[in-house]
Design a protein around this nucleic acid. Structure first.
Lengths: 221, 221
DNA sequence: TTTACTTTCAAACAGGCGTTTGATACGCTC
DNA sequence: GAGCGTATCAAACGCCTGTTTGAAAGTAAA
């Protein structure tokens, strides 16, 4: 996986106690800063400052800012969520509800250590070299899984394009609350994303979407 | 409105023939570059290059890059769309359909000279000093108008919060296609946003949303 | 023509960026 | 202790950014 630095002479113990610790601190700081400012807006110096590491540490341990982003990405939480959803055993409509709730919690919960989704959500709009990997390993599986879920709920005759658009409608509603947060903050200054508020939003999106999916063919030709 | 430069001695004719022309060229170039690269990604030098103006022209005519953005914004197309929608005379459901179609055309049509919406859509995610003005003059009226429209369609007993979430659901679906364009391009490389495709997407969002609004209270407590 | 003023221009400026460098301290093996 | 590979550090590098500067060009009134 990683190539910097090539460990040759040090013992594993030493590595774990010295190098590996700053590596981890850098990764954690990077996730914070990337999720807050985006890739362009984040600076290597600020990441190093938060990690209490030297300014050259990023390039030493990860080769470049790009390399740091690539290793800071972690798709495990998203995959875990999908697996949990598959094994929930509920009916498809209930699984969609759970899916949306879990996704909204990842996107909005401030206390959630999974800033992964926030980093990825930022990447959607303006691409970095890491976007290809993100799409391949996280977004495509997400679309695929959601597509299957919608197919189970929708009418059998529903076409492929229409199915895809339903997936877009669901994800669009969810991502809106993250992408437009600066705007929503100005429109409704009092609004806070408490766990209760997130649940209410998720429930709305689920109900709204289920109605939309169910009545696909009834509104027009 | 503008303060740079303070016109004192030149005749109006001269101003129109010299200064005003480069001003307009700068504004047009700025709209192009801002909509393509976002505010952070856009560089003053590139804007000046496209406008065939000197590198100092932006600061001379607009004071700063921020000032250029503020004057490059033009909310007229968005307001015109809303006015046209009010006067369409159709029933609320049909007006919502028209509204979504017009918005999607503004957001996606490549040939459309109104890159205004694209600039604004970019600003949603990461704020610049111009965001306050954008929210006040464009986004808030948009939310308000859409809110009234939804209120006409929805059940009378629908609460304020739920109404607002419907507006978010509609806008979220629309904006998704713009915000996630880099991702969608990778997921479906063949997809092109022809006028026909945009119409199909708009029609889907309208039908999906109308079903969602109509069946607000039926799915759960 | 002289004067006043606006606009354009090449050049430079100051600051921030990601990155590189060479020295230094450290821990291990021999 | 000698030698070696590793990690950290302050400092600097080269580049790009928005912005400023002072001179030059141009036009219109005096």
């Amino acid at each position: 996986m990683r190539e910097y630095p090539k460990t040759q002479m040090m013992t594993e113990v030493q590595i774990r106690n010295t190098s590996e610790q700053t590596r981890l601190r850098l990764l954690e700081a990077a996730r914070e800063v990337f999720s807050q400012h985006g890739f362009q807006g984040a600076t290597v110096r600020e990441i190093c400052r938060r990690a209490e590491a030297n300014g050259a540490a990023v390039n030493y341990h990860f080769g470049s800012k790009d390399g740091l982003l690539a290793e800071a990405l972690n798709f495990a939480p998203l995959k875990a969520m999908q697996n949990a959803n598959i094994n929930a055993g509920e009916c498809p409509r209930m699984r969609l509800r759970l899916f949306i709730l879990d996704l909204m919690l990842m996107l909005l919960d401030e206390k959630n250590p999974s800033s992964q989704c926030q980093i990825m959500a930022r990447e959607l709009a303006d691409p970095t070299p890491a976007l290809d990997k993100i799409v391949r390993e996280a977004i495509k599986p997400l679309h695929d899984y959601l597509g299957k879920l919608v197919r189970e709920i929708a009418d059998e005759k529903t076409g492929e394009a229409e199915l895809r658009r339903c997936v877009h409608s669901i994800l669009g509603q969810c991502l809106f609350y993250r992408h437009s947060q600066p705007v929503l903050q100005r429109l409704h200054p009092r609004l806070r994303y408490s766990h209760k508020e997130i649940e209410a939003i998720a429930e709305h999106i689920a109900a709204f979407s289920l109605a939309g999916i169910k009545h696909l063919g009834t509104n027009l030709a």
